[in-house]
Structures are given as structure tokens and as C-alpha cells.
Amino acid sequence: MSDYKKPLPVVQPYSQAFWDGTKQNKLLIQTCGDCKATIFFPRQQCPDCWSTNLGWMEARGTGEIYAFSITYEGVEAAFVEDLPIVLAWVDLPEGIRMQSNIIECDPDSIEIGQQVEVVYKKINDDITLPYFRPIS
């Protein structure tokens, strides 16, 4: 796994729980204990009410494609072997929208509104990245 050349997420203290979650194949969403907001991306304080009374909830792990784009070229060298890359914005039923990739799919079959589910890829001992694939 040490030959992974692509950029790894720059983890922050207040997002560590998210990445600890993906290691256990759980998609955790930050929540506000005061105003009940669901928060993405994780922050030090609730962006709605500035509360620091924050917690985590486990997402169902399903979503819907809000937008996508299939990239064929123009990426950094480390990503070339992955082309074409299906970029997607995925709406989770918990009320957040995430940037990810749709994998394990025929790129030409991807549509806005399509239902997807999370799939985890272990990169190294610290990082497991969440991706999505169509629900067949």
C-alpha cells in the first residue's frame, strides 16, 4: 500500500473521527448536539449555531447522484491510471452532499438521480477512502 502515489486527505483533529469511522467501514456524519444540524465537512464548531457540542451519527450508506462528470484527461500524473474517473456529488438521505467518485460502474450508464451505495477502499493503515457505486 506504500506505493500509493495519489494525494491522501489532509486530516484535521476535528475530522479524525470521520477517518476512524471509514477504517471500520462506517460513514460518520458530524452532528450538532444543540441545533441538530448535520454537518459536512466536519468542523471545530457547528456552522449554523457555533456550538462545540458536536457528535457523530452513522449514515445509512446510501445516496443519490446530484451531479456527475466523467474526466478523461487533464489530471495529475498519479491519477492517469484511473482514467476515466467519474466525479460525483452524492446527496445522502441524512441531508449532506459529498464529493466522491462513482466506481465499479460503466461510466456511460451514470445518470443524475441514480441511487448509489458507499464502498470503502483501504489505502493504508490510517486512511480508508469512501467511494460510491450504483445499487444494482
Binding site: V75, I85, N101
Partner: peptide, 28 residues
């Protein structure tokens, strides 16, 4: 130009580029 406008935690690891981000928006 791939990294200048990107979030290093939530976008960059997924191969997002300027063109890719604008492709997403154009499609929507």
C-alpha cells in the same frame, strides 16, 4: 490549477480538477 481552488481533504483525493468541478456544475 488542479489544486489551487480545491479542498485538500474532501476533494483533492478524488481526482477533482478545475475542469472536472466545472463539468459537474455544467451537467447539473
Amino acid at each position: 490549477f488542479a489544486t489551487a481552488p480545491l479542498d485538500m481533504q474532501w476533494e483533492y483525493p478524488y481526482g477533482v480538477t478545475f475542469n472536472g468541478a466545472m463539468g459537474l456544475i455544467t451537467n447539473r
